[in-house]
Design a protein around this nucleic acid. Structure first.
Lengths: 342, 342
DNA sequence: TTAGACGTTCAAAGCGCTTTCAATTTTGAC
DNA sequence: GTCAAAATTGAAAGCGCTTTGAACGTCTAA
């Protein structure tokens, strides 16, 4: 069923039917109802493609997910983020198109999206330090919002980020207050912007408390269980091992815990652990009392909000950039305790 | 830049330019090269919408991800599956559109996709017992393939599945051979088809070996860490607790391990664990020696293959249905050992 | 020389919608 | 009952592409 047939069935012009369905005021309520009824009955809904052609909008948002070419790891937070964003799109009649792409060829993907006008805007995931995508998108004039920030970007742009620096500052301070002096950091990849900020927060807290920063206690890699395990094992094998470890995700924290137990130690007693918790739906941090002490911020909620920001960006382009900085909660769980006496 | 402008610049008709770019034979090589060069230079690529309108194809595949309305859990395997499928689509010039939807309103989503012709086909995720989506899609004539199978479906349809029944049969047999007699099962939700098949495999193995099936040893729920933990704790608290536990995902297995250790027991010595491992990129099962003994099958590879099946389905609709049954490997890790003597 | 064949190009219609501008009907004030 | 204004409807153009059917040269064979 298409507009033409529907309007013929109703004995109306395509114009009127189109207007009736799109809520234009110059249609009498009587005919509007008649049209709506018929549309329902014949299960008519307009072709997105034709509508897009006619209006010049795609009614679609692009998400380009970078697959780090070396590791082929899909960022585990992405599913929940997308779920959040998807809710917003559904509510507003937008579709979401997803592209998984090796980080080496992102540029051509964005250019393509723009020149074939297949999306009205994009969400930039996993921004890196001095991310090239931001100037690129500004240049080609494709509306975008960034999940995170990119240190080094000069022009203004819209972003939503967690206050990673403060979160890790607070977490480190929390450990220091418990008497810990040797604190390890198992971070995301160093060129990721969030990892940089977290490290800064961590280092600031140490410095402010007169603790010398020891590069041997810092590791960075993909946020997988295996990396968490491997790095923790390495840290615990040091001549002067840390009494506490901070990790960048619940998943690597699980790896850390495994390594701690492999070493015959007890998490929360011998080695404290604080992690960042993205509140992934399939990876709760304990039922009642949190297992891990964690800096906590829902990535799903971030998805919802960021999608909303993008839609307003698209619908009123001259509003200027929007910036949202979410504060992470610091939830105390069972993985932290006072530094063991020597 | 659009076709009209490009062809004007070249002093050619839209027809010729279109044909040149789409590889039609009736264009001389000289002009084809000239056109290609210009298209490159002006960074021209055709509007998907217009192309879709003109050809009647959407060049897009829909993935509808059900969010169980009770739990709001995003299936953790979905990110890796999508990554696999995405590779196939990218290679073939298709886009992927994603819809997250409460499982109660899936039907209207599929109908909508079809009537507005926004996709050429869909992938059905997480099929349930007697899944209603299969007859629905057959009825409306939207090409589809299923990731998994749906017991109870009468008409033929294309699917790709892991041999869940045999995998769990083998795993259970493996435990029985190690002397285990009380084996717990922590399964996915019971109305999921894969969970049903796994339970059947498990029960068959027990029965064939003269072990009575004990419903108190069987649990099912979302495949989260918390459920794995809770159910394992319940099982271990039974008057006559199991000496081995089978779980449906690495994530719930991690929960199981936590519960085992909370109880002061050692996994692999006091309680054996076998899990299914979907080979998620962010959740490796150990580096060298697997942590968990596991039935193993890459969901990313499944995504790649299933997408390919769908594309052939779309491009040659009258080929009949395709069915692929993948066998899971049984990888022996450190989480299993002989049943403890009483 | 001419007709047919071939290789190459083009004009125009059409895909399903929106939207401008014009036409028609209804309403309300006189 | 009349007429302008308001309300309602419609014809047609246009969005950017593909594709049909026709046209134009150029060759080849008779």
């Amino acid at each position: 069923m298409n507009l033409k047939q529907l309007s013929k069935n109703l004995g109306l012009s395509q114009t009127t039917v189109s207007r009736a369905l799109n809520g234009y005021p110059e249609v009498s309520e009587a005919t509007r109802n008649r049209v709506r009824l018929a549309a329902d009955q014949y299960n008519y809904s307009p072709s997105t493609r034709a509508k897009g052609l006619a209006t010049g909008k795609a009614l679609a948002i692009g998400h380009v997910i970078p697959l780090s070419s070396q590791h082929e790891v899909v960022n585990p937070i992405f599913a929940d983020f997308i779920a959040g964003a998807g809710e917003t799109y559904a509510r507003n009649g937008y579709e979401m198109t997803l592209t998984m792409v090796e980080d080496t060829q992102e540029e051509s993907i964005y250019r393509g999206m723009h020149s074939r006008r297949s999306v009205d805007g994009v969400v930039v995931h996993s921004p890196r330090m001095n991310d090239t995508r931001i100037p690129l998108l500004n240049e080609i004039g494709l509306p975008f919002v960034v999940h995170g920030r990119a240190t080094g970007a000069t022009a203004p742009y819209s972003w939503l980020d967690v206050n990673n620096k403060r979160a890790f500052h607070r977490a480190a301070k929390f450990l220091i207050d418990l008497g810990h002096r040797r604190i390890g950091l198992i971070n995301g990849l160093e060129d990721m912007d969030f990892a940089h900020r977290r490290r800064t927060g961590y280092q600031d807290a140490l410095r402010e408390n007169g603790i010398k920063i020891d590069p041997t206690l810092m590791r960075s890699g993909e946020m997988t269980e295996n990396f968490g395990h491997r790095y923790t094992r390495e840290l615990l094998a040091l001549p002067n091992p840390p009494t506490a470890i901070m990790t960048s995700s619940l998943i690597s924290a699980m790896g850390a815990r495994r390594a701690i137990e492999d070493a015959g130690l007890v998490m929360g007693r011998d080695v404290s652990v604080i992690t960042h918790d993205d509140v992934l739906s399939y990876l709760g941090n304990g039922d009642d009392v949190p297992i891990y002490t964690a800096t906590r911020s829902s990535v799903r909620e971030a998805g919802r909000q960021l999608a909303e920001m993008l839609l307003t960006e698209i619908e009123s382009p001259h509003r200027g950039t929007q910036n949202v900085l979410l504060e992470a909660e610091l939830m105390v769980g069972q993985s932290t305790g006072p530094a063991p006496k020597i």
